[in-house]
């Protein structure tokens, strides 16, 4: 009886010892505790002898870094295994895309054909593709490109022209309505003041002050309308990049991993 008890105890203990450490790392990962999951994975990597499992662990380490927001370390991990499988390569390209390294991504040698979508996306953000290039792409890519091409550039000189005739309108043109309204007020108020002090209540000093204030704000308005139109496209594209990163995080931008 004693023998049977000891045998069962030893077998149970051995089971506990040889259970994969990745299960605990998975538990931590699912719990959102990426930092501790990373520690478990690194420990497993240290003891691991099998090359295939090692690759899998390196990928998981990269994914943990990705979820933690440490994109540089994630890129480093994925770059070690990118040529091995389609999923690993996708993760590498994904980290490049998230870091906005569009030029590097474009020049990267793609081993697996399916990952060409990332090259197309990087070209889209570099402004090197047209709408017709997305005809044969997936539905999601088409949607992304359609919305991207809806963002139009604003002409800074047109904005100056608007502001020259009606202060504030240049900023309205760049979709900055609050700024436009406020700058219109800052210019029109001293202009009305100068008219008042010139024709109704004649006061030369106040007339000069209000005219010079209006002139100074007018200069600022011209520069502001030019600048807001100039940076409009860049800022909108930047905003769109983060929008698609959030909206497609469960489809195109979902990293490949399995425990």
């Amino acid at each position: 009886m004693r023998k049977i008890f000891f045998i069962t105890m030893i077998s149970l203990l051995s089971l506990m010892i040889f259970t994969s450490e990745l299960d605990f790392a998975k538990f931590l990962f699912d719990d959102g505790d990426y930092y501790r999951s990373l520690t478990e994975l690194k420990r497993e990597l240290f003891f691991c002898q099998d090359t295939q499992i090692k690759e899998k662990i390196v990928n998981l380490i990269g994914v943990n870094y990705l979820f933690m927001g440490d994109l540089k370390s994630a890129e480093e991990s994925f770059s070690k295994i990118k040529d091995i499988s389609e999923g690993y390569e996708k993760n590498y390209l994904l980290t490049l895309f998230f870091q906005k390294k569009f030029k590097d991504l474009k020049e990267t040698k793609i081993t697996f054909e399916k990952n060409n979508d990332f090259v197309l996306l990087s070209k889209l953000f570099l402004g090197e593709v047209k709408e017709k290039d997305f005809i044969n792409s997936s539905e999601e890519l088409k949607e992304i490109s359609d919305n991207f091409f809806k963002i139009k550039k604003k002409n800074p000189f047109l904005a100056i022209l608007f502001s020259t005739f009606l202060p504030g309108s240049g900023r309205f043109y760049s979709e900055r309505n609050g700024d436009g309204l406020f700058s219109m007020m800052t210019i029109l108020t001293p202009i009305f003041g100068s008219i008042y002090y010139k024709f109704i209540n004649e006061n030369k000093t106040f007339f000069v002050i209000s005219t010079s204030v209006a002139a100074v704000f007018y200069l600022g308005e011209l520069y502001g309308s030019f600048n807001s139109a100039k940076i409009y496209y860049e800022k909108k594209v930047n905003r769109y990049f983060y929008e698609i990163k959030d909206n497609y995080s469960n489809t195109i931008f979902l990293p490949y991993y399995s425990f």
Binding site: R176, F182, Y223, G224
Partner: peptide, 22 residues
């Protein structure tokens, strides 16, 4: 100076609406 004046005109009630875009 002109840049500073532009900034004065941008410092208004709508600033927080543009956080995330401009």
């Amino acid at each position: 100076f002109v840049k500073g004046i532009d900034r004065l005109q941008r410092c208004n009630f709508s600033v927080r609406d543009y956080v995330g875009t401009f």
